[in-house]
């Protein structure tokens, strides 16, 4: 059975007028000299267009990510010019590559060092499920140790796929309620991973 994988299924039409991409204002009530809207919408808008990614690249997916950061694909267009290398400064953990079992505690510690709100993107078959490495030394998916928001399939995924995954993350970030991280459900999720 074929397993179709498609990226960028919500394509934007190219248009000279919108060549400079601006974010759309959130829904709200506009009057003479004022504008009211929900706080979570404004916070979401700000967050989603200024995500600082932390690349945790262990193998070939990391190479593909370098292309994504380069001028041709340019992740900076999405407000992520600043790739941070300190987990304490970053919002998005991008796990790219095979995670050996010996690496698992390291990855987990990096995740724990990130401040809330934090998101996790798992890129490629290995990070998502162990991939071809069906062997005793490889972690069979990072979701065994940390919660994951978005999985990007592929071995390795093309930069387009990475961008697509990144835009999904933006979608999640933009729509997230500012109370989500205090919710019982979220606490339960972290509890299930043994994270306080």
């Amino acid at each position: 059975m074929s397993r179709p994988v498609r990226f960028n299924i919500y394509q934007k039409e190219a248009d000279a007028k919108t060549a400079v991409s601006m974010t759309e204002a959130p829904e709200g009530y506009t009057g003479d000299g004022f504008f009211t809207t929900k706080l979570s919408d404004v916070v979401g808008l700000a967050r989603k267009n200024s995500i600082w990614p932390l690349p945790f690249a262990t193998s070939c997916c990391g190479i593909e990510f370098m292309a994504t950061m380069g001028s041709h694909y340019d992740l900076a267009r999405f407000g992520s010019e600043r790739v941070g290398f300190s987990p304490r400064q970053c919002d998005l953990l991008m796990v790219m590559g095979t995670i050996a079992k010996k690496m698992a505690p390291v990855l987990r510690q990096v995740y724990l060092q990130m401040a809330e709100p934090r998101w996790v993107l798992s890129m490629g078959a290995c990070a998502s499920s162990g991939g071809i490495f069906d062997t005793y030394s490889v972690l069979q998916g990072i979701d065994q140790i940390i919660p994951v928001d978005i999985y990007i399939p592929g071995c390795p995924p093309r930069p387009e796929a990475v961008l697509d995954g990144f835009m999904r993350i933006q979608e999640l970030v933009g729509q997230e309620s500012i109370r989500r991280r205090n919710s019982e459900q979220y606490k339960g999720l972290l509890e299930s991973y043994g994270i306080q």
């Binding site: 079992k101 162990g130 005793y136 490889v138």
Partner: peptide, 22 residues
């Protein structure tokens, strides 16, 4: 090379190569 918690010797042929938890 292996994790300290490992409780067997993985390249002995009595043990399967594949990850058994998945």
């Amino acid at each position: 090379l292996n994790v300290d918690e490992m409780d067997y010797f993985p390249l002995r042929k009595e043990y399967p190569l594949e990850e058994r938890t998945r």
